[in-house]
């Protein structure tokens, strides 16, 4: 009885009811019935991503291999670990002020869990590039880009490009030899863009060669600009999956 009163006191007031929609399982309880299963999906923010019911064949691990979902999850994980890293990192380089590089040193030497979080961020980034590639292959072999999903494939290719750019801009930030020269290989190629080669390279580097300006520029691209654009395209991607009738198939 006392337990019930407490529950009533917590749930039977305007604040609680303003948070949970009518029909939410947090308002009226959950019994394992079809109705409550439907309500659990409907009165949930995940309703933006998932419909109430999905095709049975899509549940089999061997249909999607969860690759799209895992790409998205890795993106979230990278955002979280990335925010942690931002607390301990300053994008400053240049003779006498090698702050960025020293920050990376400190991260592993004196920040609690610093090394672990950096590792998660690094391996997570490689994993995401990999899962996005595999996701693309999965979609191709299922012919899942066929009408009405043509445009979502195009959005996907843009997401692939954005994933690569996210990864690549992050690669420069530790400001060690590995970063500097790996990025040099890439940006040198950009310099061969027909006609506008020099201009393209200057915009990318903020200088004629990789230097402190490049670091600042790529830092902003990495932590703000590209993630923002990626989120926009992810929204379109997920919206189209639902508008196109859920995932494709069965084959």
């Amino acid at each position: 009885m006392a337990k019930k009163d407490l529950k009533g006191a917590v749930q039977d007031n305007v604040v609680w009811k303003s948070i949970f929609r009518p029909g939410s399982i947090y308002r009226k309880g959950y019994r394992d019935t079809s109705r409550d299963r439907a309500l659990a999906a409907m009165n949930n923010v995940l309703y933006h991503l998932h419909p109430v019911k999905v095709k049975r064949h899509g549940l089999k691990l061997t249909y999607t291999y969860c690759l799209g979902g895992l790409s998205f999850f890795l993106f979230i994980l990278l955002t979280i670990t990335g925010i942690f890293l931002m607390f301990f990192y300053t994008p400053a380089a240049g003779a006498g002020t090698e702050v960025a590089y020293l920050n990376m040193r400190d991260l592993s030497a004196s920040v609690t869990f610093g090394q672990l979080v950096r590792n998660l961020h690094r391996w997570g980034a490689h994993a995401m590039v990999f899962t996005v590639f595999l996701h693309m292959a999965r979609v191709f072999y299922h012919g899942a880009y066929k009408p009405p999903r043509e445009f979502n494939w195009v959005v996907g290719v843009i997401l692939l490009l954005l994933t690569l750019l996210l990864s690549f801009t992050g690669y420069l930030l530790p400001w060690d030899q590995l970063a500097l020269w790996a990025v040099t290989v890439g940006t040198n190629m950009m310099g061969f863009t027909p006609v506008f080669g020099d201009q393209v390279q200057f915009v990318l580097l903020g200088d004629v060669e990789i230097g402190p300006n490049t670091l600042l520029r790529w830092y902003v691209l990495h932590v703000l600009f590209i993630p923002f654009i990626t989120v926009l395209f992810l929204a379109v991607h997920f919206w189209r999956i639902r508008k196109d009738g859920g995932i494709s198939g069965p084959l």
């Binding site: 380089a93 090698e98 590089y101 990376m104 040193r105 592993s108 090394q115 672990l116 950096r118 590792n119 998660l120 961020h121 690094r122 391996w123 530790p174 400001w175 060690d176 030899q177 590995l178 970063a179 500097l180």
Partner: peptide, 12 residues
């Protein structure tokens, strides 16, 4: 991440 550390070379 527990067993493999991300690489960090010498200063650029």
């Amino acid at each position: 991440s527990f067993f493999l550390d991300a690489p960090l070379g010498s200063l650029a």
